[in-house]
Every structure is written in structure tokens, then in C-alpha cells.
Design a protein around this nucleic acid. Sequence first.
DNA 1: CATTGTACAAACCGAATGGTCGGTTTGCAA
DNA 2: TTGCAAACCGACCATTCGGTTTGTACAATG
Lengths: 220, 220
Amino acid sequence: MAPARLASSAASPSHATEEAAQRILHTAERLFAEHGYEGVSINMIAEQAGVSKGNIFHHFSSKETLYQTVLGSACAEARRLLDELVNHDGNLAERLMHFAAAHIAHLDRHYHLTRLVQRELLEGGVRRGKELAEQLCGENFARLVGILRNAQGRGELRKELDPALIAQLLVGSNIFFFQARDMLRHLPDVDFADDPLRYSRMVVKVILAGIVPPPGAQGA
Amino acid sequence: MAPARLASSAASPSHATEEAAQRILHTAERLFAEHGYEGVSINMIAEQAGVSKGNIFHHFSSKETLYQTVLGSACAEARRLLDELVNHDGNLAERLMHFAAAHIAHLDRHYHLTRLVQRELLEGGVRRGKELAEQLCGENFARLVGILRNAQGRGELRKELDPALIAQLLVGSNIFFFQARDMLRHLPDVDFADDPLRYSRMVVKVILAGIVPPPGAQGA
DNA sequence: CATTGTACAAACCGAATGGTCGGTTTGCAA
DNA sequence: TTGCAAACCGACCATTCGGTTTGTACAATG
């Protein structure tokens, strides 16, 4: 919409008012991502956003509406950011490596959004936001599958493999990384918990070449 | 309101009373797994378990205690069930295939527990249960890493790969399957959403051999 | 029989919840 | 200056929350 210009001194009316709504939205996004829908109260949002409770209901007709708006705008931003991920040249290995790296970097930078989507995946229940997440993921998922199918046609990917499964493995390993991250930090065998990029690169290498040494070769 | 008649003649007194506590526990497990801690009220549990609210507080000192008990007993059961997963003979490919199949079957059968653990992973916050999940996962994770390291010593696994990463990829792909399952069902490219075992087998095959056709070989 | 202790239900409590409402400020148009 | 609508606040409401208290049916013990 309007450019979110914000010089609070000599500003137009819609500036200040829109800024309040945005502040509510951002605070709500952070809190919902952190504590879930039921774990966040309107009072909490009002307090941390620095507005009155009544004002929240002035901008959003209900808590549910606020949540939907948060999810919607978050997904819109995600779609914008993910749009460029798939467009890359090179052979399959290069493209997958680029996609995975950009994907996990995106998840890392927007971890509020990531958690929100993870929550929606988990709930699956009454709240409608699941559809948004489905739509969001589905779109990019389909494109990734397209790339893989294409590579399959060119003989860069084994014919007997399901492209959708590879896509799920790629995306899932990245998403799950952040879900398990806090736990990974406590596992003595794990040293990649604080380096998402390295993790993702290693995963792609495994997916590309497998873990079994090539026949006739002595490992290292 | 069923008066929950006690068989005053034959049954031992601790029998009936224990049954009520178990009913509370099982109901709570289901509800907590479905709606999360904040999404479940004591009234809800009492109603669906067929006991009074006061009775719940008679058996469990607080909602938090009830939740911890649910998580604890669930984890104890999981540990018991997972114990046998790692003990299997054969080469690396066979062992990993067996582990992954047994693991995903276990997740499928005990999906209340699976969701509970997923929730704990996601929350990561104040509630202490995270430690339980960490302990639960950590134990089996370490054993899986041990197997992989062992295989590495025998040259069955590329030397330059991190065993912990392979373990994370194996376990994570299975867990994430159930998290994304509802979404997968709506993706037109996906046909494995209702066949966890097939999914897991294909994943292991990818991890073992990679997706790139061997040089000189024509796919399929 | 009286006493004691347990398992349970129902009424109840203060605090917090989502949501409403009347009134006040703000900023622009006429 | 006045008019007006949108932005905003804070008190208020009914409901529900986790948790407590009270009372009772019953089995075991003396």
C-alpha cells in the first residue's frame, strides 16, 4: 500500500495511524510466532505495541481477524521473497545448491514467519490459516518439482525417483533444522547447529551423491 | 453424568481409582497433543474424561504437573519402544532401512506422542518438558550416530560426511513427514502422503545412493 | 458402632480472558 | 472557526480460566 514513511514530526494523519496498525501487526506476529494463538492475549499485544486494547479492536475486528491478517501479510511477504529462489541457471546440482542455500537463509532471517508456518502445519485444526500456508508452500513446491522433473527429462536425475519426494526432502530438511535447532545445540555429536548454511550445503551434497562410497573408491 | 460406579465387590479399591487417573492421563495426552498446553482447559479434560474438575486436582496437583506427567509417561513409553530399533544386523544399507521403517511406523502408531514432542520442539520456551524431549531424542540419536560412525570406520560411509548430519537427516525427514502430512495431501504432485513406509524407504534410498545417476549409466 | 482416610462431585473464588462502549483527542475540509 | 470522521483511550461486561473448599459415599480399621 502507501509507502510506510514515518517522520513522526510533520506527518500526514494516515501516517501516524497506519504506523500504529503496523506496530500492532508486527508485535502480534512476534508474539503469535513465539507463544501461539492461545498463548497470546490482546492485553499482551496492546501492552507491547504501546497502544490501548480498544485501539486494537478498532483496527481489527477480532483476535481471530488480527491473527489472520498477521498470517496473510506474513505469507505475502514470504511469497515475494521466495519468488526469486527458483530462478537460477546451471545444472541440477548448482540449482539445488543455490535453492537450498537461499531457502535456509530466508528461513533464518524471517524466523518469526517460519515459526508461524510451523505452528500452522502442526495445528492443522480449526483455524483457517492452514490454507494460506498450503497455498504459500504449494506454489513454490510445485515450481521446485517442475525443476526436478525437467532435470529428470535431461537425465540429470534418476528416472525411478519421485521428484515430489526430493522436493519434500529438500524443503523439509531445511524447515526441520530450525525446529530442532534448540535441541541440536545440546547434542554433543552435533556441531552444525549454529551454521544453517553449512548444514544445508552438506544435506544437498548427501542428496546429490548419497552416502555410500562409489564402488572401487576408497573413502578419502 | 455417569456415576462411574465402582465394582464394590470384586475389584480392589486401588483398581478403580487408578483407572480414573489413567483416564485423565490418556484424555490429557490426546488433548494436549491436539491443541497444545494453552489450548486445553481443565474443564475440557474433566468433561471428556468423565470426571469432575476437582478430581483432576485430587490426582494431579496442578495443570502443569498433569502436563509434565503426560509428557513423562509418554516419553517413557517412547523410549521403551525405540529401544529395539537400533539393534539390527546387516550392512549399513540394511540397518538404515530397518531403522527408518521401524521409526516411521512408530511415529505413525503413536501420533499423539509424536505431536506432543513436535510441540515441545516448537515451544522451546518456558515449559521444562523440552528437556525430556531432548533426553529422549538425544539418547537414541547418539546411538544412531554410533552406528554411522562404526560404518564409517568400515568404509561403508564416506569419510568426509558428518555422521550426526546423516542421523539428523534420517530422523528429521521422518518426523517432518507427519508435520507436513495434512499439507502434502493437498499437493497434486505428491502421492506418498498416505504411505509413510514407502516414503521413508524412498528417502533412505536417496540418502544411500543420491539422486544423480551414476556416470556412464542411463537412468532407469 | 464410631472413626478415619480416600475418591469423588459440585459449588465457589479471584484473576484474566475476548470484546464493547461512551467519551476524548486529532487532523483535515469547508 | 466550525464540523466531522477517524483514531484512540480506559472503564466496563460476561465468560472462562486454574485452583480451592466443602460435603458426601464408602471401605477399612478399632
